[in-house]
Every structure is written in C-alpha cells, then in structure tokens.
C-alpha cells in the first residue's frame, strides 16, 4: 500500500510539472506588433532545423532571416513558428504567420489558397544511396530497387505513380526512419528533394556514409508563401530576394548549407515579380 501512495505522489508531481512548463512556454500571437512571425520547418537538416540548444539553422531559415531584415525586422524581432506541411495554408490564412519559408513548392492547387513570392530556389527530386552503391544511374534502375520516402509526400507519390511504379516503395513517418533502413540495407535508396537529402548527407553523424545519386527526377520551385492578395508584401519580399541573389548572399548560403554533400545546385532562379 505504501507503494501506491508513492506512485500517486509521483504522478501528481509529473502533472504539476507539465502544467507549469505549459504555462511558461506561452507565446504572443499576432504578427502586427513589433515582432514578426515566420513559419519554417523544424525538422529538416540543411533547410530548416531546430537545434537542441534552441537556435535555428538551414538555408530556408537564412533566407527568412535575410528577408525579415530587408522588411525591417532584425533577428531579435523574429518569432519562429513550426509550419508542418499540412498546416501551412491555414497558418497563412489565419494570420498566424506573416510568411512561410519551408521547402514550400509552388503548385497550382496551393496558388488557389495562398500567394507565393519567389521562387528563391529550384530543387529536384533525387536519391540518397549508400556511398559504395553505384547501381543507380538512370530512372529505369529504380524499378528493381527498394525505395523509401515519407508517407504522403509528393516525392513518394511521384515514384509510385509515375517514375517507377514497379519499385518497392516503403513509406515511413520521417526521413530519419528511412535513413536507419538505408544504413542497415533494408532499403536501397531514400528519395525526396535533393536539398533535404543534401542536408542529411552533410550532417556530422552521416558524413561519408551516403551520397546523392545525382538524378533530376522532378522540378520543385520553392516559394515564400504569404497571404493571398497581399501584393505589397509580395513585392517587398521579391525585392529582398533579388537583392539577396545580386549581392552574393544567395551563393554564399547555398555553399554553406549544401556544399559539404557535393550537391550541385541550379543557378539562382529568376524572381517572377
């Protein structure tokens, strides 16, 4: 019976601790104060990643920082918000964020809901393979392979419906789970945008283990998502992006984030305006 009392006390303590932290982490909403809310991905190395010490790194994050600076918001005025793929349109529509820089491909369906500035980067779907594996050189090779991608992603659907319908496609919850399979040889390749793959290949714990196959399986134009009809903001962001490309910051950032993986990027895209 003594045990029961102890466990009750322990569970009460846990509940208290949880509520206390919940109170502590409250954040101010609304993007119209002197701070700006920006949506990014928190879980994609190389593009948008929240590090364990609470800072944010990645190409998307640096682009977002640069644009914010041009709009008049220095680093300490930025509220970073996580923008998971399924929630991006609603976050923009509800005004939770001013804009989203998070591997956000410009598609027709999305243009019905939000506007895009940019594109600021053109990525291609590619494959990540083990460093000693040279068996994939063209699309046709995929049909006999075991591939892995994130469930529901555009890349997974591309492989399944168009590129290699006969390939054995494993759909998992996240890229890191696929990487475990790739390392243990239960899958042959991980497929998604080359930018994301490059981010994983360049991570310290993965360096030298994996490489990009170098196939361009699709074109993904990354844009900065913002509220539909906000032509003023769109113009400002486009101007900032143009400046970023012309003053050499773009090249520097690309080299910094994708360089270590040997990823050959496309030249900077033309801003649509």
């Amino acid at each position: 019976m003594k045990l029961r009392k102890i466990s009750a006390a322990a569970s009460a303590a846990v509940v208290l601790a949880l509520t206390a932290t919940a109170c502590g982490s409250g954040s101010d909403s609304g993007s119209n104060g002197d701070k700006i809310n920006i949506g990014i991905k928190f879980d994609q190395p190389g593009m948008g990643l929240k590090t364990p010490d609470g800072t944010y790194t990645g190409f998307d994050v640096d682009v977002a920082r640069y644009v914010a600076k041009e709009l008049g918001y220095p680093e300490d005025k930025i509220n970073w918000k996580q923008a998971p793929s399924a929630e991006r349109e609603n976050m923009i529509k509800n005004g939770d964020v001013k804009y989203i820089v998070g591997t956000y491909s410009i598609t027709e369906k999305r243009l019905k809901e939000v506007d895009f500035a940019g594109p600021y980067f053109v990525a291609h779907q590619d494959l990540l393979v083990r460093a000693d594996d040279n068996s994939i050189t063209k699309v046709e090779d995929l049909n006999s392979k075991k591939l892995c991608s994130v469930a529901g992603s555009t890349s997974a659907q591309n492989v399944r419906d168009k590129l290699a319908p006969k390939a054995d496609l494993r759909q998992l919850g996240g890229y890191s789970e696929c990487l475990t399979g790739l390392e243990n040889k239960s899958v042959d390749a991980l497929t998604t945008d080359a930018t994301i793959l490059a981010g994983y290949a360049a991570q310290k714990e993965h360096q030298g283990k994996f490489k990009l196959a170098g196939l361009s399986l699709s074109d993904e134009k990354y844009g900065i998502g913002l509220k539909k009809g906000d032509a003023d903001l769109k113009g400002k962001i486009n101007k900032a992006l143009e400046k970023m490309i012309s003053d050499g910051t773009w090249d520097k950032l690309v080299k910094q984030h994708f360089g270590p993986s040997g990823y050959k990027n496309d030249p900077a895209p033309k801003i649509a305006g």
């Binding site: 793929s85 369906k109 529901g152 494993r170």
Partner: peptide, 18 residues
C-alpha cells in the same frame, strides 16, 4: 507504410491544398 485510409489522407493533404 501500410496503405490504409490515413496514408491516402496524407496523399490528399499534400496534393489538395484547396
């Protein structure tokens, strides 16, 4: 990766933003 309803829903969420 079992091809059941929730997986199809993820496909749709990705494609049918509108």
């Amino acid at each position: 990766g079992a091809a059941e309803a929730a997986l199809l829903m993820k496909d749709m969420i990705e494609n049918e933003a509108d």
